[in-house]
Structure formats: structure tokens, C-alpha cells
Design a protein around this nucleic acid. Structure first.
Lengths: 229, 229
DNA sequence: TATCAAAAGTGTATTTTTAACACCTATATT
DNA sequence: AATATAGGTGTTAAAAATACACTTTTGATA
């Protein structure tokens, strides 16, 4: 291989993951207690370093998988953070990713093993380095993305109630929504399948379960339809 | 300094800039003829490498300044590109930035010196590596950003006509807009200053010049107003 | 100096979207 | 049998977006 750029500086490239989950009422992020210096013992995002033979998306997948056992979830690059002294140990540039997972799916044991813990985004502890600002940006991106694309479903179990969906959007947008207007809007999008099944946990009456109809959404999208909440 | 991460791989971090300009009718990007291998002689974005002692924003500024003499323009990080073999010479991750400049301000001489050239985004040549996709993403980001924030003015001279502004938005959005509706909407935002001066170049009648009232915009924004075109 | 050509400038009516709002239903629990 | 609790449902008003055509100005030209 040619090596035309040999005089240029090389740097460490970290990948940090903001992992979002939704737990009935609250939007949460998964944090880990850092077990190495610097800042050992402080709460941190899941992170690792890019390797020579992988791209950033792959590194993010690998890091998530290694630290939590979680695979095949929605993940998207957020932004790169490059303040010269952001990591006191060594010059490191960090590329942040955010992931959306169905909180019920995660293997609690694996997460325990690594001292990972879910925190409400409203009550999360102070994080190392520039991780606080990464989380802030991730929430803002999540807000934008979930209002333009049907990504919210990634945070819910496959079968969910209208109320759960509404609470999810309320948590993401950090505002109360009108029940009737919300349901009317979702129904007008016509991308859910209403099941005959009811969820009996939340009330005596029970509430109908729905599923996201991904195929229908794709078809409609191809025809120019655009999701908007 | 500690060096806790010494076993990790280091990589070259490139910064590539998509420089947007607007020339009466068309949205343009500034390209450069690459004068070193690999891909010498092909058209490329302006690029360079991150140095140890600067952050990415600073690197982007430095690169733009070095290659064009352009300083103090709106610039924003876009995305990082990391395909393993994206640069055949060596493993390189590129962080793309986009800049908005008033095309009249650029020093034509300096640009000539570096074989840089403006191309309409509709007629731009094929670019090296993954630069085509970067441009595509940048246009998409520009569309989003200029519809939510008053960034379009960065691409115009300080004094501009309504028609120029409309043509700018038409070029960015790649669609015709209705003259009356456009003016009504812009006027309703109430962030322009109408001057007594007319621009006599475009018609016999002449058309009034306007300026963006940045102070007023900031005041309104602080009060909860949000720009939306 | 009258006419023409070319872009500037201007307002209303219709449609669509968003927002506000309250009562009945079903059923497990007592 | 009564009650408590969350589920479910439609209409009206307000706001925003869209569609649409004629008059004005003035330099150039006949």
C-alpha cells in the first residue's frame, strides 16, 4: 500500500454510545461505571476504540455487543467530539453513536456483569469528559428523528398500546400530548395493525395492542408518504 | 501525560469541506483539482488532516483558510466517513464539514492559484473517494438547516432583493416557490429591514434591497420565536 | 415622445392542518 | 350491586398553507 500521508499526525478514535431505552414512563440511558483510569469509578457512556480493520458503524456495534450483549439494534452516528484535552490521558477524538433498544429485551445479567445501569434522562448522574453534552445532543437528535421517521417503535416491544406509544412520545418530546389528538394523528398515518389482543396489565378494561406495520410503511414511503408526528 | 490507551490503533483523521456558494441562480460548490497521489488530477473537496494541537472545527477553518484564503464563514460539522478502504493510500477517517460563503466575497485570484473552481451542484463532476456522498449529505443537511434557521443569508450579500432570496431557497430546496406566498411568509417572520435603496441591475423598475436584522432575530428567538421557511 | 417589454409588487379565497375540548365504556375489586 | 380506574371516541374553531392574476414602473426603442 502507498503511504503518501506519512508525515501527518495520527490520533486515537474512540466510539461512545448513547443507548436509549423506554421503561413505561421514562426515557432512559444505559450507563457504565468506568473500570479503568482516568476517571475510574465515574459513570460514563459505553465506549471503545476504532480498530484498523473496521468502520465506525462496525466499531459501534462491536462495542455495544461486547459491553452489553446487545445486537441488531437501531444505531446511528451522532457527531464527533474533538476538544484537544477532552480526555486527560491522551489525545482522543470521539465519534458518538446513539442506539434505540427495547428495554425488555436486554439481558439483565449481562448488563449487571459490567456494572451497567439504566438512568432516567432526567435523573442521570454527571458523566465523564464531554459525555454530558453528547447525551444532550443525542436527545435533541432523537427528538428530530422520531418526529420524521417511525423510529419510536424501536424503543417499544413489538406489541404495544396506544397509551404506551403516546407516553413514549411524551417522554421524547418532554411534553404532554392530547390523548384524542394523538390517537387521531397516529391513526391517520395508517401504519399500525390493531390486534384483537388486549393488554390487561394497565387497566380493568384492558387496552388494545398494536403493531407497527413495517411493510406497509415502506410501501407508503416509496409512494411519497412521509411520517410526521 | 498518562498513556493508558497505548495498545489501541491510531488513525489518520482527515477533514473535508463542502463549500457552498450561491450565484444569482444556482447553488454551487467549490472544488479543487487534487495535486497529489492518489487520484492526482481528479476533482475533490478541499481537505487536509487534523493536527495534534487543534480540534476539528479549528482544522476545518485552517484548511479552508489555507486553500482559499476564506475566513470567518459559517461552518458546521456534517458527518464522519470511515469505510476501511475509502482512501486507497492509507486508512483514513474523514470528518466532513460544510461552509456557507457569499460567493462575491471570495478572492478569485487566490482560488485560481489553487485550481479551485465553482460548480453548480447539478453539474458537478464526479469526485474522488466518497466525496460524492458527502456532497449529497451536505445538501440534505443544508436543506434542513436553512428551513429551521436563518442561515441562507450567509450565502447572500448583506443587501439582497426578495427575488434573490426566493431564488436562493428555490435552489436549495430544488423547487419553484410561489412569489406572493414566499414574500408573505418572509414578511410575516419580520426579521428583515427594508432599505430605501433599490437594486437596478435586474429590471427597469428596480427592486428594493433588504438586510437581515440579526439583532431583531436574536431578540425574537430569545422570546421563543422560531424561524421556519 | 409614445409604445413596448420585462421584472416588481401586491391581496384574497380555499383548503388543509392543528388544537381545544368532555363524556361514555368496560371490567376487576370491594 | 356499587365503585373506581383507565380506555375509548368526534366535533368545532383557529391557524397555516396554498392557489391564483392583475397593475406598476421605467429604460429601451421605434
Amino acid at each position: 500500500m502507498l503511504n503518501t500521508y506519512s508525515t501527518e499526525d495520527k490520533v486515537l478514535l474512540a466510539v461512545d454510545c448513547i443507548i436509549f431505552g423506554f421503561d413505561k414512563e421514562e426515557l432512559k440511558i444505559l450507563l457504565i461505571k468506568r473500570d479503568f483510569e482516568p476517571e475510574k469509578g465515574k459513570w460514563s457512556l459505553m465506549g471503545g476504540f476504532l480498530k484498523q480493520n473496521e468502520n465506525l458503524d462496525q466499531a459501534a456495534d462491536r462495542i455495544l455487543s461486547t459491553l452489553t450483549g446487545i445486537n441488531n439494534v437501531y444505531m446511528e452516528q451522532l457527531h464527533s467530539y474533538s476538544k484537544v484535552d477532552r480526555d486527560p490521558a491522551e489525545r482522543t477524538i470521539s465519534v458518538a453513536y446513539y442506539a434505540l433498544i427495547n428495554i425488555e429485551d436486554h439481558n439483565a445479567e449481562l448488563i449487571e456483569k459490567y456494572s451497567a445501569k439504566w438512568f432516567s434522562i432526567k435523573k442521570a448522574p454527571d458523566l465523564i469528559f464531554d459525555h454530558n453534552i453528547m447525551v444532550k445532543h443525542a436527545i435533541s437528535r432523537l427528538r428530530y428523528k422520531t418526529s420524521k421517521e417511525p423510529l419510536g417503535f424501536e424503543l417499544l416491544p413489538p406489541k404495544f398500546t396506544m397509551r404506551q406509544l403516546q407516553k413514549l412520545y411524551e417522554a421524547i418530546l418532554n411534553q404532554k400530548l392530547d390523548k384524542r389528538n394523538f390517537i387521531n394523528k397516529i391513526n391517520s398515518l395508517d401504519i399500525l395493525i390493531k390486534l384483537d389482543e388486549k393488554d390487561m396489565n394497565s387497566s380493568r378494561k384492558g387496552s388494545f395492542l398494536y403493531m407497527f406495520d413495517e411493510e406497509k410503511y415502506k410501501r407508503k414511503k416509496a409512494e411519497g408518504f412521509s411520517f410526521k408526528v
